[in-house]
Write a protein that binds this DNA or RNA. Sequence first.
DNA 1: ACGTTTCTTGTCTTGCCTCGGAGGC
DNA 2: CAAGACAAGAAACGT
Length: 700
Amino acid sequence: MKIVSVDDLPLDGKVIQVLRNRGIVSLNPVQSEAIEKGLLEGKRMLLTSPTGSGKTLIAELGMISHLLKGGKRAVYVTPLRALTAEKYSTFGDWETLGIKVGVTSGDYDAEDAFLSKYDLVVTTYEKLDSLWRHGPEWLLETDYFVLDELHYMNDGKRGPIVESVAVRAKRRKILALSATVSNGEAIAKWLNAELVNTNWRPVPLREGILINDRKITLSFSDGTTLTLKGSDGILSYTEKVVEEGGQVLIFRSSRKMAETTAKKVASLNLKLRRGEVDSLASRLEEVEDAGSEEKNTLLELIKKGVAFHHAGLSKGLRDLIEEGFRKRIIKVITATPTLAAGVNLPARSVIIGDIHRFNRRILGFQEEISVMEYKQMSGRAGRPGYDSEGEAVIVVRNRREAERIARKYIFSPPEPLESKLGNESAFYSFLLGLFAEKGSSEERVRNLVYEAFLDRNVTESYLEQGFSWLKENEFLTNDYKLTVFGRRVADIYINPFSAKIIKDVLTSSQSEDCDIPYLHMLAMTPDGPIANVSKQEEDDLVYVSPCPTFMEEPDDEDELYEYLSALKIALIVHDWVEETEEDTILSKYNIGSGDLRSIVETMDWLTYSGYQVAKALKLESHAEILHKLNRRVYDGVKEELLDLIRVPGIGRKRGRLLYQNGLTKPEDLLMNQEKVKSILGEKLGEKVVKEAARVVGGVL
DNA sequence: ACGTTTCTTGTCTTGCCTCGGAGGC
DNA sequence: CAAGACAAGAAACGT
């Protein structure tokens, strides 16, 4: 029996009402197949299908029917905070059924115990992995897990986390969602679930190759070909699509290329709706978190209906660009792969400008992107409701290449999902996490480890090796209990190799007044951020550093690069906490405001971790310095401003301004309200005074 | 003869994302 | 197993 109308669903009328309110009256083929195979009866399932094929709704029906039948709690896991926020907002619809929906991830602040009052919790893989180590009651009694975007398992760095979450989740009921993979059967078997695999998509997709030779030829897999005029294939094709009323998403492999392509597109004179474009442009000028340079270049582009998009941009700018595209004010976005993985932003046509991407690990070489990655990008083609068909084209330079590329990306299945736990760093972290769980024992860990997707022989060889490494480095006692140090490392969720570096360096170094050696050491850990170091900087960095590092400058070329990259991070954060003007930092180090934000975020977490590790090791003077440093990193202020910036609305800039005018504490703001208003302006001043009152009141 | 534009050559650069916790959702 | 940006210098071009 195929269920097509939502009215036929064997579910409470309220459930059907929620769907109807969303405008859903019938189920698509993927959805009805999942239901047919027992989704609503709580059947374990692995669902592989293209992006945008309505997997979220399937997960919702799975979770809701589970909860309505007396299930205790459901947890929905995604690999990205942006997705977590998006799903949380979608799932809010179910509150009308009395289902309480909560969310937790790095940027939501919730204490573990607080989540116990929710029936449905949305989170990230890392957060869930971390929660499991603390073992709160609400998590232990959770009996349904949805693992979204399971194909992230193939990511070298983060895949092991996905896998280790799956190992624990699959002991309960699960529903796993993934892009199409070539070994779905094997994964389903591993998860003890039934495979539901379809290729259905809401808007049909045509895939093609754009040959950018003397002549520009566009040939699609269905056999149609056409020739375009012009000298730049990307431009000619883009112009054609926009003239026909469509939007274009162009993927380039580097930020710089995305920016220059955007500038070229801007010279096309696309037809725009002037009024909307102008109001978007004026809103762009008001974006607060952005650097002035990126804002100015984007402003010019947006007026021409085009924008570039990459992680160097501030969050505010990215959000505005995405919104402008969704409202069809912006016709063309040129982007790095950020947009392929994150929140859904479809366009009539997707151009994959490069199939090569630089990879530092394969030094000097470029690697071809994976088929799966291509599918992620091309899957963004076709806007439901606007386009009857989506188009995805790969740009190549000659006819010979065209055939090989078409065979590889268009006519071949994507790669299989593989375990990425087979390396020391991933495997030892996995072990440490398992030992940190409630009721852990040597035997339990030994059993759990074999439930990973990793090959049995490989697991065996890493297991004993991992145990002795954890013991040697004092994470684990000889009778398989975590040491104080080991416990702390598991809790703060840093890589054990990072912890080892911090431990080794701090125990062998005297405490230093300067913050550079501390920041540098933290940036050198596997958890540290990475900065690109130019040739020029290679020569200058050591020279401009105000003081030496704990770690010695290596001779080896690759190691030297890592050392200098960490030094650059240290200098950036040093300038940041010394209250250097943001625009100055951005141009001095040639980074974007988005980069600065992410460096600060990571270093905030790492300085906290460093402080905790030092404390656990009873290295008091190091701990004190790191603690003081940590308090300054997030907001980027000198110590004397810490008191003032407790007031919401006051950051490093306003804080410094008030401080210079003799207002140094929140209390001072209350005592000199008129002065505050004259410094910050009437409206803002009033708001700040109110906030100050709350802060001061809270203290009393 | 001199200034400007175009071409040639060699060097340089190069994606993204998640992790803690304080108070109080 | 790369490709485009950029800078510097050479060559071509124009007045």
